[in-house]
Design a protein around this nucleic acid. Sequence first.
DNA 1: GCGACAACGACAATGATTGTCAAAAACGCA
DNA 2: TGCGTTTTTGACAATCATTGTCGTTGTCGC
Lengths: 131, 131
Amino acid sequence: MSEGTAVRNTRQRSAVSALLAEMEGFHSAQDLHAMLRERGERVGLTTVYRTLQGLADAGEIDVMRPPGGEHLYRRCSEGHHHHLVCRACGRTVEVAGPAVETWADRVAAQHGYTDVSHTLEIFGTCPTCTP
Amino acid sequence: MSEGTAVRNTRQRSAVSALLAEMEGFHSAQDLHAMLRERGERVGLTTVYRTLQGLADAGEIDVMRPPGGEHLYRRCSEGHHHHLVCRACGRTVEVAGPAVETWADRVAAQHGYTDVSHTLEIFGTCPTCTP
DNA sequence: GCGACAACGACAATGATTGTCAAAAACGCA
DNA sequence: TGCGTTTTTGACAATCATTGTCGTTGTCGC
Ligand SMILES: [Zn+2]
Ligand SMILES: [Zn+2]
Ligand SMILES: [Zn+2]
Ligand SMILES: [Zn+2]
């Protein structure tokens, strides 16, 4: 259905990608844009948004949408996984739960739902943020 | 800690609450506001928003935040549960997964996270929406 | 009934995200 | 290396759900 779209290498795309590569934890588009500016990289905010969207669509980065906040982006490891996030500092651990995956699919199937996907996020206070 | 806050009974609060009671599925604040107007109820949009927030904070209704859409509200059954939602028509089934709950808590504890909570949503296409 | 104070609501403000579109940059090819 | 085509960029405007404002109204304990 779609093939002809040629993705071009640009300075801006590389800059965003490189920044994400060395970044720990989740960051918003505005955050990343500010960091790029501090580094002297000249990248427009609109471009940052679009690049992040593209990377997310391509499955190269993960998106998290905290209640009442901006979208947060992070470069993650390959494959399907979920996140255990510290509410205070944002420290994130990737967690895998094969049992959960099969449970979700089974539950959906039992109710006749097809084309199933899911979202799962665990929030807590990490050791260093626990007083 | 907090007690002095007296909640008052108002026509508007009753109207919103009553509407939610007879409503199936999730609906946005703007939706509910429009329905109230059609019924002849005179309720301000701001009030609808704040009433829904109040009910959600009190745990009387559930909130869902679909990707790129408005917040959706629904009167749900008591107790902790999750939702299996049809992407096409919004038909929603409440599902309980005790195993998932304990798994989430255990994973968080293993990493030293405390004060743990989680979000879980399953999406799919319901039987009637499957061609 | 009174009065304190919560609740209301029309309206303005916010703020993240998206749309626009002319100008700049990539890239295939010569 | 130069050229034409096509994508990408980015400053700016627009969108739009949600929140803030603040004078008015309605509740409710007394
Ligand atoms: Zn922490
Ligand atoms: Zn999963
Ligand atoms: Zn359906
Ligand atoms: Zn749960």
